[in-house]
């Protein structure tokens, strides 16, 4: 291995109660990558994400963290839960809580935590709403707040779980720009799970396409020339028509790109 990967996933199998959802999956993430994980519902995106985060242990295979990255240093942007919709908390309280993972048993925030929190608030352009209540914000603003919190937990890697779902087109474009900027300017590696193939193609440098039992991993450009992509982009109906079912058979497994 000539290069140290941030994440190297080797022959990973993961799933629920003996049922493997993700089978024999291998891929790597290097510093500065923008990896988009696409695939239909049930293809194992969330399972893979939970395994990456350590919320689930793999059934076989392993995930190796390199480049000084610890599993708990992944800045995670989860999907919002119903309980958060009416949660009384200020933006600053939420963002600060991103610093907690590193604190161990230390009960209170340090000055460094607060500085980090404020700089991330500034970075994401939410300073004017820092003292507002989370529940009074729009969907796009809430996502920015959660992104700022994720940045408090990491400087290296963001793992975004469908960051634009439920946002209107304008706000979606804004959100993509923010993520791209963090990737470009702050050098943050991004792993994004997405249903939005267009966005994934436009912004991602690499694609991991999951199918039940198979997968494709490679650069975005290579992905465009695969059968799996053509099938996906001509049929956008999220159904179980022939198109989608057949595709699993001719999946180009593994990908060629390892540079």
């Amino acid at each position: 291995m000539s290069e140290e990967y941030l994440i190297e996933c080797k022959n990973l199998t993961a799933g629920y109660e003996g049922q493997a959802v993700v089978k024999d999956l291998s891929f790597t993430v290097s510093q500065g990558d923008y990896l988009c994980i696409v695939g239909e519902n049930g293809s194992g995106k969330s399972t893979l994400m939970k395994t990456l985060l350590g919320l689930k242990s793999p059934q076989s295979g392993e995930i190796v963290f390199g480049g000084g990255l610890k599993q708990t240093e992944i800045g995670y942007l989860p999907q919002q839960t119903a309980a958060q919709k009416d949660f009384p908390a200020t933006v600053r309280e939420v963002v600060l809580s991103g610093c907690l993972g590193r604190r161990g048993f230390h009960p209170f925030y340090t000055k460094a935590d607060k500085t980090l929190c404020d700089s991330n608030i500034e970075l994401l352009g939410i300073k004017h709403i820092a003292h507002k209540s989370y529940r009074d914000l729009s969907g796009g603003q809430q996502q920015r707040v959660l992104l700022a919190r994720a940045l408090c937990a990491t400087k290296k890697l963001l793992l975004l779980d469908e960051p634009v779902s439920g946002l209107d087109p304008m706000v979606t474009a804004e959100m993509y720009e923010i993520i791209a900027r963090l990737n470009r300017e702050q050098g943050v590696t991004v792993i994004m799970i997405s249903h939005d193939l267009q966005g994934a193609l436009r912004y991602g440098s690499r694609i991991l396409h999951l199918e039940s039992g198979a997968y494709y991993f490679g650069t975005t450009d290579e992905y465009r020339s695969t059968d799996i992509f053509h099938a996906m982009s001509t049929c956008d109906c999220h159904c179980d028509c022939d198109h989608h079912v057949k595709r699993a058979d001719n999946t180009d497994k593994g990908g060629t790109d390892n540079a």
């Binding site: 599993q71 708990t72 995670y76 949660f87 809580s97 994720a150």
Partner: peptide, 10 residues
């Protein structure tokens, strides 16, 4: 506020 985020960040 967010159990899965907390777990994921240690």
């Amino acid at each position: 506020f967010d159990e899965s985020f907390s777990k994921a960040t240690g």
